[in-house]
Design a protein around this nucleic acid. Structure first.
Lengths: 210, 210
DNA sequence: GCGAAACTTGTACCGAGTCAAACTTTGGGC
DNA sequence: GCCCAAAGTTTGACTCGGTACAAGTTTCGC
């Protein structure tokens, strides 16, 4: 990492260039309305090169996934002894929100990001797939810690549900036109509600009323 | 429904024929190795007709989804007054298992089904999407009952996680070569463990050991 | 039977993604 | 500084999933 070398620097630059160009076009006109050939041309590169860096078209837009996944796993791995996974993730979500981080579910890189995401089924499908990868990574961590195969997967699934539901709820509100600042303020309570449910369970909710 | 009429009968027959032919080919050779054109020819029908009945290629294999979704929603809607959603779904999973139903997670329509499913990323992606649709349908039911937007979505997500994790856990074991009868017997405990976690939460699991 | 609606078909087409072979650039050894 | 090998890029041709359109064919309601 000290000496990237010319080759490595060029690769990073090309990758970044393609990603930037693609994101720009997607936000302008929507995911489905932009072809890969177009992106390649706009980036002054060949179509194959685009696919060389981003195996699927969807990865052009969802290229932060690897970072997000690594960060979440690191939150679990590096949590202090005695701290539960649920508590660690809850604190992490709060800190993301406080920092105004895109992945907190409020204030992502502009409202355009969510519009692009939700307006393309293919993109949404890939998004769900990535959420699933998060759950699998969590499960792996828990299995390594406890050796309990099934319980690890369940807990991983439940905690992932908390994270993703918090995220998509905020996304839905903002897309529906709610004021970003309002959503952001209320998001603190939403996070706590989500993790309370994950931690203590759904209980009798909803016991059938009628 | 009393008198389907010739037209309706032919449609059902054609649909069934295409689905059967497709499933057969997929199980023989895998999802990606069979083209839609091939299925059309084998079914004695045009490619366009195939897409007329099944908008996506994946739907040729995952065509039971609509039934599954409707059944799960009906379990919630028709549960007796005072019974929680969690209890209703838990009981339903147990009864599916007892009946040896494919969707119980043990003993699905042959091991071939799961092999085909897991060997195709596109198919898995669609599978996840369908799980998401289940969660959304659950949320809709809960919102209608309680009016609580966020809590409904969270509970829906948590309960869906229980169902899907139970299912995929059994699938994974059988694909790994575990004896089907053993998996089936142990599945009762797995279901209870899953719904216990959903009902009472993950608690401190796993408090970091080291 | 007759006309209209529904279903099917052929053809032509588009975009994602793959493959193989040629070409260009970089890095290391002399 | 030079040259070779390796890595990265390009080109073009190709496959397959999926759509659009217009024309055919079958069923239904009258």
């Amino acid at each position: 990492m000290a000496d990237p070398g010319l080759r490595e620097r060029k690769k990073r630059a090309t990758r970044q260039l393609i990603s930037n160009v693609a994101s720009g076009l997607f936000i302008q006109r929507g995911f489905e309305e932009v072809t890969v050939a177009e992106i390649a041309e706009a980036a002054g590169v060949s179509k194959m090169t685009v696919f060389n860096y981003f195996p699927r078209k969807e990865d052009l837009f969802l290229d932060r996934h690897a970072d997000r996944l690594a960060e979440l796993v690191s939150v679990l791995r590096s949590r202090p002894a005695g701290v539960s996974a649920c508590a660690a993730l809850r604190a992490h979500q709060h800190s993301l929100l406080a920092a105004g981080h895109p992945l907190s579910g409020a204030i992502a890189g502009g409202p355009g990001f969510w519009w692009v995401l939700t307006s393309s089924p293919a993109l949404m499908a890939r998004w769900y797939e990535q959420e699933r990868e998060i759950a699998e990574a969590f499960a792996e961590v828990f299995v390594a810690e406890t050796g309990e195969a099934f319980r690890s997967r369940m807990v991983a699934g439940l905690l992932t549900t908390a994270i993703t539901t918090v995220f998509s709820y905020a996304m839905g509100r903002i897309l529906a036109g709610d004021d970003v600042e309002v959503v952001r303020r209320e998001q603190v309570g939403v996070i706590d509600q989500a993790f309370d449910l994950a931690e203590h369970g759904v209980g009798e909710f909803p016991g059938k009323p009628s």
